[in-house]
Simulated assay, not measured.
Amino acid sequence: MSVPPCIALIAHDQKKDDMAEFARQHQAALSRFRLVATGTTGGRVQEACPGLQVTRLKSGPLGGDQQIGAMIATGEVNMLIFFIDPLSAMPHDVDVKALTRLATLYDIPMALNRATAAKFIDFQ
Rank of each mutant, 00 (worst) to 15 (best):
M1R: 12
S2E: 12
S2L: 12
S2T: 14
V3E: 13
V3R: 10
I7G: 08
A8K: 11
I10F: 10
I10N: 03
A11D: 05
D13Y: 12
D13Q: 03
K15V: 05
K16M: 00
K16T: 02
K16V: 04
K16I: 03
D17Y: 15
E21C: 09
A23Q: 00
R24S: 08
R24M: 08
Q25Y: 14
Q25H: 13
Q27S: 05
Q27W: 12
A28T: 13
A28W: 09
A29N: 00
A29T: 03
S31I: 02
S31A: 15
R34H: 07
L35A: 08
L35M: 00
V36Q: 04
A37G: 11
A37P: 07
T38K: 00
G39I: 06
T40I: 04
T40C: 07
G43Q: 07
A48Q: 01
C49D: 07
C49M: 05
P50I: 00
L52N: 01
L52C: 05
V54L: 00
T55G: 08
S59G: 06
S59D: 05
L62T: 03
L62Y: 13
G64D: 03
G64W: 13
G64V: 03
Q67T: 11
Q67D: 15
Q67C: 11
I68R: 08
I68W: 14
G69I: 02
G69T: 06
A70C: 10
M71D: 14
I72M: 10
A73W: 11
G75S: 13
G75Y: 11
M79I: 02
M79C: 09
L80H: 12
I81C: 06
I81M: 05
F82H: 08
F82I: 02
D85E: 09
P86H: 13
M90N: 12
M90R: 09
H92K: 01
D95I: 01
D95P: 01
D95W: 14
V96N: 00
V96T: 01
K97P: 04
L102P: 02
L102F: 14
I108Q: 05
P109H: 14
M110E: 01
A111H: 09
A115S: 13
A115L: 11
T116E: 07
T116L: 10
A117E: 03
A117W: 08
A117T: 03
A118W: 10
F120Y: 15
F120T: 03
F123H: 11
Q124W: 15
Q124L: 05
